[in-house]
Design a protein around this nucleic acid. Sequence first.
DNA 1: AACATGATAAACT
DNA 2: GTTTATCATGTTC
Length: 209
Amino acid sequence: MGKGFSDKGQGKALGEAYFLTENVLHLAQDLLGKVLVTCIDGERSAVVISETEAYEGPADRASHAYGHRRTRRTETMYLPGGHAYVYLCYGMHHLFNVVSAPAGVPHAVLIRAGQPLEGLPVMLKRRKMDKIEKRLTAGPGSLSRALGISTALDGEKLNGPKIWIEDRGIHFAKEEITAAPRIGVDYAGEHAQWPYRFYPKDNEWVSKR
DNA sequence: AACATGATAAACT
DNA sequence: GTTTATCATGTTC
């Protein structure tokens, strides 16, 4: 069951300024409820963001940019906020991150799950599914697959025409958000326990409780 | 060799 | 229904 979010009201695409904050923990929480829209090969789809993880660049052992590491892959994270960082994980999953903070500060927010909002038929087709279930858009790999996001979008600006984020007025207060350790970052030692993963309390469109 | 995962199957409660 | 194990897969370091 959904919360019955309307898909009628068109929102306004968020501009670059929104993504320039260095407070990536706040941004990760503020992105909950925002609408992630893609238009790939003319096929449009959108979800309400329902699970995020903050990666605090240089200070965060779980981040690809820990210690200001610069490689061909991580170069995207050093772009100014408002770009897409998409990389291949485990050889098959295209994980989508929102680059944040000013140029040179490699913070990012991993988008882990969303609630389907627009383009359900094309999302089902991309996922090779025939009916809607939670796993359609839960988990970063599944979400990207449903939205048609691939590493072809790495470094793309989040102001369209292929991918952008809208504010349609859905917002969660801090008390409505659960903070928990991030998934799949055990290699990061103590940093793996940091509560940098966020989702709205009682939201069912979350990859793991 | 490691990796910010997901699908599946088998063996549980 | 839930937990647990296994493995597919390819880029990066």
